[in-house]
Design a protein around this nucleic acid. Structure first.
Lengths: 169, 169
DNA sequence: CTTTTGTTTCAATCTTTGTTGAAATCTTTG
DNA sequence: CAAAGATTTCAACAAAGATTGAAACAAAAG
C-alpha cells in the first residue's frame, strides 16, 4: 500500500470515528493529519492538504486546542503559527476522557443529586419508588465511572489499562 | 420537589445526554420515560406523555430494541405491544458499551490492521515512520480497550467496576 | 372476507449543525 | 506609523440529521 493512500485512509477513518464523539468530521481529519505529520503544520498546509476553508481550519484548531489534544508551537524566525498534535495515543485518550467527564458526566451527577429529594406525597408510592431507584442507580454508576476515570487520569493511560487487564484477566 | 417535575427533569437530562452518544434526543427521552415507569408502556402512552409523533415513537423504539436496552412485552388479552426498559443501570451501561464497541471500535481495529503494510519506498523514511508509529499505537489502544470491555461484559458491570476501583485505588 | 385496531414506512419538512468566504482584527516589520 | 502578513469572526449558505403525518401494511375480531 502506498504512503499517500494509507495516510488518506487514516484521515478518513479518524474523521468518521470523530463524528461519533461529538467532534465534527473536519476536526477529526485535521487531528489525524497532525498526528501523522512528523513536523508541526501551519493552517495553510492544512487548507492545502484537506481542501477546507481558512475559517473552518481556524475554528477547528481552536476547538482542538480547547480539547487539549493539539497545541500551538512557534518556529524561531517564522511569523506563522504552527500546530502539532499530542503523539501519545494513551495520553490523548485520557485527555479526551477527562474532557468528556467534565462535559457530560459531571452535569448528570449534579442533576441526579437534585433529584434525590422527591416529595413522596406527590405521586403513588410505586411511581416515586421507581423514580428514586433509577436516580440512585444512575448516580451510583456515574460516581463510580467518575472515580475510575480519576484513577485512570492520575496513573496515566498505558499503566492504568495494562494493570487493569492483568488484574482482571 | 414534586414527582412530576423530578420525572421531567430526569427525562430532559437523559435526552440531553443521549445526544452526546449518537442517540437522538427523542430516543433518550423515550428511554428515560420507560426507565422510570413501574409498568411497561404502549406507544400511545409515550406519544401522549412526550408529545411526539407516532412515526417517531415507532422508529425510536425499534432503534432502542436494536441497542438491546428496551424490549417488547405483551400483556395477556391485550392486543397492543408494550415496551419496557432494562432497569439495571449497570447492565444497561455494559450493553451500550458492547454495542459501541461493535459499531465504533471494531471498524477502527480493522482499518488500522490494513494500514500495517505501507510500502516504505513511497515516501520519506520519517513520514512512513511517523504514520506507522501512529497506526501501531492506535491499534494497540483499540485492542486493549477492546479486551477491557470484553472482560467487563463477561463479569457484569457492577462487579467489574467495583473490583477495578478497589484494586487500583 | 371485511372491518377494526394497531404498527411501520417513507417522502416531505423542519431543525440543528457544519462550512464558507470576505470583512474585521490583530501582529510584525520596514 | 503605514503596509503587508496572518488570524479570527460571523452572517449567509449548505449539509446532515431528526421529525412528522398520512398512506400502506399487518393482525385480530366479527
Amino acid at each position: 500500500m502506498k504512503y499517500t493512500e494509507a495516510r488518506q485512509q487514516l484521515i478518513r477513518t479518524w474523521g468518521q470515528l470523530s463524528t461519533h464523539w461529538g467532534i465534527s468530521r473536519t476536526m477529526g481529519q485535521i487531528h489525524a493529519l497532525l498526528m501523522v505529520s512528523p513536523d508541526p503544520l501551519t493552517s495553510d498546509q492544512i487548507i492545502e492538504e484537506l481542501k477546507i476553508s481558512r475559517g473552518n481550519v481556524s475554528m477547528s484548531l481552536r476547538s482542538l486546542v480547547e480539547w487539549g489534544i493539539v497545541h500551538k508551537t512557534f518556529i524561531p524566525g517564522d511569523r506563522k503559527e504552527y500546530f502539532a498534535s499530542e503523539k501519545d495515543v494513551w495520553k490523548m485518550a485520557l485527555q479526551i476522557a477527562r474532557e468528556r467527564k467534565r462535559r457530560e458526566l459531571d452535569p448528570v451527577i449534579q442533576s441526579m443529586q437534585h433529584l434525590q429529594a422527591i416529595n413522596p406525597e406527590t405521586a403513588s408510592a410505586r411511581e416515586v419508588d421507581e423514580l428514586n431507584k433509577m436516580t440512585t442507580q444512575i448516580l451510583d454508576v456515574a460516581m463510580q465511572v467518575d472515580k475510575m476515570l480519576d484513577i485512570g487520569i492520575r496513573s496515566g493511560g498505558q499503566t492504568f489499562v495494562r494493570k487493569l487487564i492483568s488484574v482482571l484477566r
